[in-house]
Amino acid sequence: MTYLNKIKIFIFVFMFMLFSFSINAQWNIPADAKNKKPPVDPTHTLVKTGKDLYKSNCASCHGTPGEGNNIAAIGATDLGSGDYQHSHSSGQTFFQVEQGNGGMPSFRDKFSSDEKWCLIFYIKSFDKDFKITGEELKEQKADLRLSLIEKIRTVKAYATTKDKSGKEIALEGADVQFFIKRMFGNMQIGEIVTTDNKGIASIKIPENIPGDEEGNLNLLVKFKDTDTYGKAIKSKTIKWGTKLEIVNITDKREMWGSLHRVPLWVLFSYLGMTIGVWLVIGYVVFQIIRLKKL
């Protein structure tokens, strides 16, 4: 019974510790933080920058604003909710990004001041009353075509888009990313490449990228700015990886292996000693039984 009680107490302590983060997350925002104003007016370009930052740094806990896919258990709120938007001014959010609290790390050193403001513009863009100035970013559906230059291990991506008359033209100045498909995600190769005036972004595939048993790599190419250019992903199997040699470590005779992989010296020492000793024991027993006949 006492054991059960102890377990109960332990569960309680454990749950308390889990939820104490939400308790910790009591924000203590100084009054003057509210008045802190951005140095520039929000534009669509700045909001877009903020969105990219948000995706890679905030979304894992806070989810997509307004969609409620935040992790509430650790105290992360949905920043797109009306509650949050009404109770937090831009300055207050800026303070929170700077300081961090409880489960939230401080981003003071991680982002520049401009970046922080871009982030806040993006968060604030979910408030209906928030005014964004400047030109709206236009969608410009684009497409990618890949070609390989075997000799120099280079992949060329041709980015094209359509002009007003529907004619296909080269897309200049678009950021293109190259990935290699991996078990749990896509691994970026090299830097982001911006297409030139012919719409070409090319990259040299480094050596020593492990491929499958034939050395095949699964290459994926896409635009970085999927909002503008669309989510076109082009994939291609390239043979420039190193060949994977499948070595089964359990085939070796090891001390840690299974019985079938017992090191031979262990096997022979064991069998030799055991059989030797038991033969002598057998001889003695045999002689005892023979005692009668002596």
């Binding site: 001390m255 840690w256 299974s258 019985l259 017992v262 090191p263 262990v266 064991y270 055991t274 024991i281």
Partner: peptide, 17 residues
């Protein structure tokens, strides 16, 4: 399923002996 690499197996053998 005895594993000859395990000292427990040696122990069982040698205690029996």
């Amino acid at each position: 399923h005895g594993r000859l690499q395990s000292p427990i197996l040696w122990d069982v053998t040698v205690v029996t002996t």
